[in-house]
Structure formats: C-alpha cells, structure tokens
C-alpha cells in the first residue's frame, strides 16, 4: 500500500470519526445534512458486501467495519438521539436524496466491470458516493455559514479525495494491469464537486466573510 492510499484512508477515517465524536460530545448536529449521511451509509453498506465473501487483509476488514459502524452511528444519532435530533436543520435539509439513488442504480446496471450482483453493487456505491455530498452542499448554501464542524468535515473529505487520486496515478504507473475506469471517473466527478466547494470556502475565508455559495 502506498503512502497516498494510506493518507487517503486516514483522512476519510478522520472525517467520519471527527464528525461522530463531535456529535457525541456537543450533542449537536447543526449544519450536518442527514440526507448526505444516509447516502454514505448506503454507499458503505453496498460497497462492503464483500466482507462476507472475500478476505483481502485485516486492515481492509477493520477499516470497512469502522466506516460502516461510524456512518450508521451518525445516522442513528441524527434520527434517534433525543438531544442531537433537536439540533438537526430539518427544514433546510430538503434535498430529495432518494432521487439520486435510482439513477445511480440504473447507471450501475448499465456500466459495471462485470454484470454480477456484487459488481453492480460496487459500481452503484461508487456512483452514489460521487454525488452523496450534494445535500450537504445545498444545506451549506441554504444556511450560508460554515462552522468549524462542517468546515473540518468537508476539508477532511476533500483531502481524502485528493490523496485517492494521487494513489490511482501512482498505482497506474507502478502496477501492471491496474486500470479501473469506473472508480477513476466517478472519483473525479466527486472531487470536482468538492473543488467547487473549496473555491467558495477559500474565497470567503480570504475575504473574512461568511461562506456564501452562488444560488
């Protein structure tokens, strides 16, 4: 495993854990989109079906379980915990996230590396992950401010995306037969969505303003 891949996994891990620990500690999820969190839980659940069929390494298995457990915990906190639930910006978090799922499923049925249940689910999870941040971006745009919680969260997710792209470039040049077009293209789309966010984040930070995304 190369350093880019490891750093990508770690920033991804921290993004989820930091969010979970903060929600647990401050008993608030203000500014966090439940829609995005539910989509991530679906992404992990559909991608890691191979937990039951394939063993890659202890590292892979443990990381998969931690990602699954922490993302499901976040959803549980936001939906069920009586204090956290109260801080959820329900009226602002209006993105119709269910409408993202069907197109991703259709796309996965059409474009996959192999037409098997596991591979279609794998492709579905990649397509869904690419767009899962959209409800969060819409919520940021609505509330027009970014606090430390959401700022760090999206920053860590962005770092994760960047490291994974470096990992793919590194592996392409150092390994034979390492070609994953579906992963690369959906990963690139996802990173571009973050890039859009970063542009406005840094712009507002430079001007010392509250974050304001274009309507």
């Amino acid at each position: 495993m190369n350093m880019f891949r490891f750093l990508g996994d770690m920033t991804h891990l921290f993004s989820v854990l930091v969010l979970l620990l903060k929600i647990h500690t401050i008993k608030s999820c203000a500014g966090i989109s439940l829609k995005t969190q539910e989509l991530y839980a679906i992404v992990f659940a559909t991608r890691y079906l191979d937990l039951f069929t394939d063993y890659i390494s202890l590292y892979n298995t443990v990381m998969k379980l931690v990602y699954l457990g922490s993302s499901l915990s976040i959803v549980w906190y936001m939906r069920r915990h009586k204090l956290v639930r109260r801080s959820y910006d329900k009226d602002q978090d209006t993105f119709r996230h269910h409408f993202l799922i069907l197109p991703c499923l259709i796309l996965a049925l059409l474009i996959n590396e192999k037409f098997t249940f596991m591979e279609v689910m794998w492709a579905f999870s990649l397509y869904l992950e690419a767009v899962a941040i959209l409800p969060q971006l819409v919520l940021l745009q609505r509330t027009r401010n970014i606090d430390n919680l959401t700022g760090q969260y999206v920053f860590l997710l962005g770092a994760y995306r960047s490291f994974y792209i470096l990992n793919w470039i590194y592996r392409y040049f150092t390994e034979v037969h390492y070609v994953h077009w579906i992963t690369w293209i959906s990963g690139l789309v996802q990173t571009l969505l973050y890039g859009d966010f970063f542009y406005y984040y840094f712009h507002s930070w430079k001007n010392n303003e509250k974050l304001q995304l274009p309507a």
Partner: peptide, 10 residues
C-alpha cells in the same frame, strides 16, 4: 459468487 475483480481499495 466471489469477487474475481481485485477491489482492494476502500
């Protein structure tokens, strides 16, 4: 139905 494609990334 095992996975014969090598998806070793997370």
């Amino acid at each position: 139905e095992g996975r014969d494609l090598n998806h070793d990334e997370l």
